[in-house]
């Protein structure tokens, strides 16, 4: 019993110190996770690469193109050479930098429905809710969408 408690305590200490280290390393990492836009048609996984944050599509409600039956590609990309890039895996959020005011900005959001890229700022309303504001030029003229964090289910035994 004592052995078990010692093992548990050691594991907890290691886990805590690792968590603490990660938090100190990158406070913006609270953005990392899987998020679902309000329309529920896609899920986006946000990761950090270097010091910036990127979000790629990891799930689509309709993964295949109804016309071809094949997996959707980025057919509206303004660069014709990239129109065969698969949409699943596409980075629609790029180059976000965590700011001292708790927002992630200086990034862009890509709308695969029309191939347009917008300036974007991300605000975390609470740990499970993001306000994603896309805009052209000035933020006041933009549109905000609310994304929800997707809960990760514990593995079934």
């Amino acid at each position: 019993m004592i052995k078990k408690i010692a093992l548990w305590t050691a594991s907890a200490l290691i886990a805590f110190s690792t968590l603490n280290f990660d938090l100190q390393e990158a406070p913006g990492d609270k953005l990392v996770g899987i998020w679902e836009p309000s329309n529920g048609r896609a899920r986006v996984k946000i990761d950090r690469i270097g010091t910036k944050y990127y979000g790629r599509i990891v799930w689509l409600i309709e993964p295949n193109d109804p016309e071809t039956g094949l997996p959707k590609t980025d057919k509206n990309n303004p660069d014709p050479a990239l129109q065969k890039v698969p949409l699943k895996g596409y980075r629609m959020l790029k180059d976000f930098v965590y700011q001292a005011d708790g927002t992630w900005s200086e990034g862009t959001i890509y709308d695969p429905l029309n191939g347009s890229t917008y300036n974007c700022v991300i605000k975390m309303k609470d740990k499970n809710t993001l306000e994603i504001r896309g805009y052209i030029g000035v933020q006041a003229l933009g549109r905000t969408d609310v994304w929800k964090r997707l809960a990760v289910q514990p593995a079934k035994k």
Binding site: I49, G50, T51, K52, Y54, T73, L82, K84, V85, P86, G89, R91, K94, D95, V97, E106, T108
Partner: peptide, 20 residues
């Protein structure tokens, strides 16, 4: 898909090559 990125806030990630 291959992309290149940098820590520079002024420089955006670019998709540079793919096969699909």
């Amino acid at each position: 898909v291959l992309s290149l990125a940098s820590d520079n806030p002024e420089v955006s990630m670019l998709e540079v090559a793919f096969k699909n």
